[in-house]
Amino acid sequence: MAGLDKEQPVASTVLSSQIALKDATGSVAGGWGASETRAHGRSAYPAVVVSKGDSADNGGVTLKIWVDDWQIQCCGQSFAPGDVVSWNLLEVDPEDYAAVVGSEHAPAIDFREEHHGHEEEQALTSLEVLAVAEVHCRYAVPPGSTADVLYPVPGTTVMVPASEADGWAEAQPDVRFAGYLVTARRTKDEG
């Protein structure tokens, strides 16, 4: 990755909720969190903000969508409640997000937003963003693990309502920013 010197830690996404942290010597890097630099090596497929503030009230069912912090940091566009966006949505197993968002919020997650490597597989979905919450949690190597992989620590979730999502969040005590839980609904032109 251009711009990283040999002494700077590099984090890479293992799964959306697991982070392997190593420096150039292969040692576990300290102090790096879920919102730090990640090497992902895939082509960009940016989310598109279709319009700002145009309501798409179709009385439809709301959807819960997970958006990884790094997806927006890498090459996504910021968004806010009231925006109409076009996103590539992939179905998820909500339990994969339980440790990150908390067991009470995980069952509601329908999709994750993805704009890396799935261009031909899925059409974009037009959505009106209704609400955005920053999701923060603590990460740690599980007890007894010999791997240098950090996992979200269950029960440490902190959610902060957000007026805009740009991939970055104000630091919260004892937790690291992981992404956004977005409430949205399909716009009228979606069938």
Rank of each mutant, 00 (worst) to 15 (best):
residue 135 V to M: 08
residue 142 P to I: 06
residue 97 Y to P: 03
residue 101 V to S: 02
residue 169 A to E: 05
residue 87 W to S: 00
residue 110 D to E: 08
residue 137 C to Q: 11
residue 118 H to N: 12
residue 110 D to S: 12
residue 117 G to Y: 02
residue 83 D to R: 00
residue 103 S to D: 14
residue 175 V to N: 03
residue 147 A to K: 14
residue 164 E to C: 07
residue 144 G to I: 10
residue 151 Y to S: 09
residue 146 T to E: 13
residue 151 Y to A: 07
residue 122 Q to A: 14
residue 139 Y to I: 12
residue 119 E to V: 15
residue 167 G to P: 03
residue 87 W to M: 08
residue 98 A to Q: 11
residue 84 V to D: 01
residue 117 G to I: 06
residue 161 P to H: 03
residue 99 A to V: 05
residue 162 A to L: 03
residue 115 H to Y: 13
residue 82 G to I: 00
residue 169 A to M: 09
residue 136 H to E: 05
residue 81 P to E: 01
residue 93 D to Q: 12
residue 125 T to W: 04
residue 142 P to E: 11
residue 145 S to F: 11
residue 115 H to F: 12
residue 104 E to C: 02
residue 101 V to H: 01
residue 131 A to V: 01
residue 142 P to D: 11
residue 108 A to G: 15
residue 86 S to H: 10
residue 130 L to C: 05
residue 129 V to S: 00
residue 156 T to G: 05
residue 141 V to I: 15
residue 158 V to W: 02
residue 107 P to G: 11
residue 100 V to I: 13
residue 159 M to G: 06
residue 95 E to T: 14
residue 97 Y to R: 04
residue 86 S to R: 14
residue 91 E to I: 11
residue 90 L to F: 09
residue 169 A to P: 06
residue 160 V to R: 02
residue 87 W to A: 01
residue 83 D to I: 00
residue 105 H to I: 04
residue 113 E to A: 15
residue 173 P to W: 09
residue 129 V to T: 01
residue 97 Y to T: 02
residue 168 W to H: 13
residue 89 L to K: 03
residue 118 H to A: 10
residue 114 E to I: 05
residue 170 E to G: 10
residue 118 H to C: 12
residue 156 T to W: 06
residue 126 S to F: 09
residue 155 G to M: 13
residue 175 V to P: 01
residue 117 G to C: 06
residue 135 V to W: 01
residue 131 A to Q: 07
residue 162 A to W: 00
residue 86 S to T: 08
residue 117 G to P: 02
residue 102 G to M: 05
residue 150 L to Q: 08
residue 116 H to F: 08
residue 109 I to P: 00
residue 99 A to Y: 08
residue 134 E to L: 04
residue 137 C to S: 11
residue 147 A to D: 15
residue 94 P to C: 10
residue 122 Q to S: 14
residue 119 E to K: 15
residue 139 Y to N: 10
residue 95 E to K: 15
residue 155 G to R: 09
residue 133 A to H: 06
residue 146 T to W: 12
residue 91 E to Y: 12
residue 97 Y to C: 05
residue 160 V to W: 01
residue 104 E to F: 05
residue 132 V to Y: 00
residue 104 E to D: 13
residue 131 A to R: 02
residue 123 A to V: 09
residue 93 D to S: 14
residue 154 P to D: 10
residue 83 D to G: 02
residue 156 T to M: 08
residue 156 T to V: 09
residue 103 S to N: 10
residue 108 A to H: 13
